[in-house]
Design a protein around this nucleic acid. Structure first.
Lengths: 327, 327
DNA sequence: TTGTAGGCGTTATCAC
DNA sequence: GTGATAACGCCTACAA
């Protein structure tokens, strides 16, 4: 037989070069023999691995599973697979995993882990590989990215609280080296201004990480300060969970004494007592859109860099209530 | 230069064949040039992709992220990466994903998705590829596997309830085509016998899936039956969550009216009201051990097939209480 | 439309 | 201890 002809017949892209009759026979034979083209050999020849690297802090963060599924599903449609790397927010691990994936000749990267000033971004730029940021933003527009409009999300939360009569609205801000932390903080400031509420610096506490423990610590700090707040807009649901615990420990009740709003709408967060009022984040779509953007770049699309924002949705549940008359 | 020699020097396994001096020079040169061996070419030659396929039902099930991290971490140590495939419990999707991974020449599989009578297992056997079952069991010992001792776990739950004075202990059983569902049901039966409690068939309802909705349905059914139970041992935490909802809807309180025990100790399940009493499952270790078993098979280890059970741990929290005197 | 030939980067197997 | 050579399976000029 004629291996080259068979190859042409097997590959949908080159099939037009082959007579229908031959194609038919080749496909039939391939079916009989259970023939499967070897993607390794193909990769060696075409220098395409049909593989992309995905760096996230930690798959155990409930934020990520739906995002990863979105990525995976869209990538699979295009014949790609994702290699997932967990970095635990550690810069060194991040670098190592990135290098290992490069060594495996991934066709591109989706980074959900980059600190705003991470050396990884410079390295990625040098690599001249397609890179898409997810749930993070490069402020200088040097990389395509997909994220939720965090500022708008927090504004929705704050104006909801203001609408309930709250004036002393505190914010537990996430880490400011991370774009979500920074932009939600900005959203808080602008929302307070827009609602005509005073921007009291004592009403903001900065968490060192998006964790329950930090939420507890920050909430405790807020409770200890003079002129106590009547509502808390937390940087995310984890921090809000910390508030629940701290309020409980302080003998305060949510929402009777203090209202709490989260951000993300984590799975099962609606089952807590009280069910958490929060800002929903279209996790799955963040994944599919990031995959889409990356596929476009991999496909040689060299148009302008796209910065995609997905709209957040405000979810009103039981953790917010009108301000108590006494306050 | 001498490509073959360089190759030998670069590969730790064959380095002994090369003089120290040469090795030193090669490594130095490689360092200078930023040389990275191409794993694709290596795979083509050695027929090893250093890649393994992992099939799970759904990454969004909170059970899986920690398991996958365990797998990933152990595999990474050995220079392997995991390709994660979500099958959503669909036999056809399962087959397709499996085939695609085979086409990518994975070196082995970790299956967490196989129904007891899934055609996938036969296919896997035919493939003569190393396969490890995770959180599932092949009853005929034809595959290595890692799972929790489900029977023992449920026995711990039931004897805890019996110790609290409960005699009418119901069970919401998971799907019986899945080994976890089946074995936990068996555990319930044997525990009831061991505690000298009657095995009333009316006290068992079978869920069609491990989901909150099915938990609601089954719990409702239990509540509707005569001689109502005073405690429920649910097949897993999701089903227990369904019980919470159904009890709520029926105006009953947990644990005052009915005690509930789950299985898995899902993340955040301790934050519910009441915090769920459950059986902990060492998720991460299931992942690392499955990876270990697979690596052994891939490494040509051809000893007897290992069936590994990890011990469950009983976690007593607020959803169980002594039986009410009136009952 | 089909055949031919060379090469992708690595390593196994010789021979030296 | 090192060099030469072929081969892994596929793709793609180019020639026929």
């Amino acid at each position: 037989m004629h291996p080259a002809t068979a190859s042409r017949a097997l590959n949908p892209e080159t099939r037009i070069l082959v007579s229908e009759e031959t194609t038919r026979r080749v496909l039939a034979a391939a079916g009989e023999l259970g023939y499967r083209p070897n993607p390794v050999a193909r990769s060696l020849r075409t220098r395409r691995s049909h593989t992309v690297g995905v760096l996230i802090p930690d798959l155990n963060n409930p934020l990520f599973p739906p995002i990863v599924r979105g990525l995976d599903d869209r990538l699979a449609e295009a014949g790609y697979v994702a290699l997932i790397g967990n970095t635990d927010g550690d810069d060194e691990r991040e670098r190592v995993v990135f290098e290992q994936m490069r060594a495996r000749h991934v066709d591109g990267f989706v980074l959900a882990t980059a600190h705003l000033r991470s050396p990884l971004l410079a390295e990625a730029a040098r690599a001249e590989l397609p890179v898409v940021l997810m749930n993070r933003l490069a402020e200088d527009y040097s990389f395509p990215s997909v994220s939720v409009d965090n500022e708008r999300g927090v504004r929705m939360a704050v104006s909801h609280l203001a609408g309930l009569g709250h004036r002393k609205i505190a914010h537990i801000a996430g880490p400011q080296e991370v774009s979500t932390g920074l932009n939600r903080y900005r959203g808080y400031l602008s929302a307070m201004a827009a609602s005509g509420l005073p921007a009291d610096p004592g009403m903001v506490v900065f968490a060192r990480s998006f964790s329950v423990e930090e939420g507890v610590r920050c909430c405790r700090e807020l409770l200890g300060s003079a002129g106590r707040c009547t509502a808390i807009a937390a940087g995310n649901d984890m921090l809000a969970l910390g508030c629940y615990a701290a309020l409980d420990a302080a003998g305060l009740s949510c929402p009777a004494d203090i209202s709490v709003v989260g951000f993300n709408d984590m799975p099962f967060i609606d089952l807590l007592h009280p069910p958490l009022t929060t800002v929903r984040f279209p996790h799955y779509q963040v994944g599919t859109e990031a995959a889409q953007l990356l596929l476009e770049r991999i496909g040689g699309h060299s148009g302008p860099i796209k910065i995609l924002y997905l709209a957040p949705e405000f979810i009103s549940r039981g953790s917010t209530a009108p301000v108590a008359p006494g306050s």
